[in-house]
């Protein structure tokens, strides 16, 4: 099993490197930081712009391969270069990665767990009221793009706040600026800010996973080994949890990797709509400001996240399916 995991890990590392390189090359050839200087007044001389771009390793007069070599050399030592304004990409990343991870982890854990639990329960109670309600809810959410989910929740929050006459739900930023409320006050404030974006993300995850888990569970419920488990005297609950759910989780765990990529895009939209200063919103902002190094850094982060999810699902897979461990 360890060999299996190590092989996968090496494969993922290679993919991360290639993905980041691709993103850098794409960004460096498609985005042009020079344009930023053309709109400045007084407009700087071409020599001055060249000098500045050279300093940032962003000059489009230098061959792409040469720029890439310099950038790659820095990245190997852990330095992602400078943004178009000359500040360090790493400094920005340190703040933004935490912001994004908070959202991603909370949204995924909440959404996937709720989805699996609800989907499995719905399968057990097939065609019951709970099944019909959860299926209806999942289908409706599946039909709504992540952006629209985020906006709709925001609109509902504005309406609720208006109806209640006070701010019940917060939908802007990740914390109240310059708040002085002690440790617990700050935590409470952050949680309040986190609530809506997390729900927006988790809803999408819930819909996907509950549908998938319901189908997988239905496939397993009628199988012989569940009947055998009941026949040898296990309670219905134990048979369902230990034999049916565990087996039905295996395909879901593999599926997790695929949905995670979609989730990352969803995070981008959610951050942007809720005005969070995370990696996703940085991506959209840095494309607008032709910030090549920031774009490459964000793609690296996203690739690492997707690969971490893939590795996590490999681990879960090995834990759930004994055949992997033995083989």
């Amino acid at each position: 099993m360890w060999l299996f995991l190590v092989r996968r890990l090496v494969n993922y590392l290679v993919l991360i490197v290639v993905a980041t390189t691709c993103a850098y090359l794409l960004a460096a050839s498609a985005l042009s930081p020079r344009v930023n200087y053309e709109n400045q007044s007084p407009r700087p001389s071409e020599a001055a712009v060249d000098a500045r771009l050279d300093e940032l390793n962003l000059n489009d007069k230098t061959p792409l391969a040469e720029r890439w070599m310099v950038w790659a050399g820095d990245v190997v030592t852990g330095d992602f270069g400078k943004t178009v304004t000359g500040s360090s990409v790493n400094d920005q990343m340190e703040i933004r990665v935490l912001v994004s991870l908070r959202l991603i982890v909370a949204g995924t854990v909440l959404g996937a767990t709720a989805g699996v639990a609800i989907g499995a329960y719905a399968a057990v109670k097939q065609y019951g009221l709970f099944d019909q309600l959860s299926t209806g809810a999942a289908f409706t959410v599946l039909a709504v793009p992540a952006v629209v989910v985020a906006i709709t929740l925001q609109v509902i929050a504005i309406w609720l706040n208006g109806a209640a006459g006070q701010t019940l739900l917060v939908f802007n930023g990740e914390a109240t600026p310059s708040l002085d409320a002690g440790f617990f006050g700050t935590v409470w404030d952050r949680l309040k800010h986190m609530f809506l974006p997390t729900v927006a993300l988790a809803l999408g995850q819930f819909a996907v996973f509950s549908r998938y888990q319901r189908n997988m569970m239905l496939d397993v419920l009628g199988s012989d080994f569940v009947r055998t488990a009941r026949a040898k005297g296990l309670t219905r609950r134990a048979a369902l949890l230990k034999h049916a759910l565990r087996t039905a989780l295996i395909p879901t765990v593999t599926y997790f990797t695929f949905t995670f990529g979609v989730m990352m895009a969803g995070t981008t939209f959610t951050e942007k709509v809720y005005n969070w200063k995370g990696m996703g919103s940085w991506l959209i902002d840095s494309i607008a400001t032709n910030d090549v190094h920031a774009v490459a850094a964000v793609s690296c982060f996203m690739a690492v996240c997707v690969m971490a999810a893939a590795f996590l699902s490999d681990l879960l897979y090995a834990w759930l399916d004994p055949r992997v461990r033995v083989g």
Partner: peptide
Amino acid sequence: VLPSFLILAI
């Protein structure tokens, strides 16, 4: 692995 949104946007 490459976020498609990123490539499309670039």
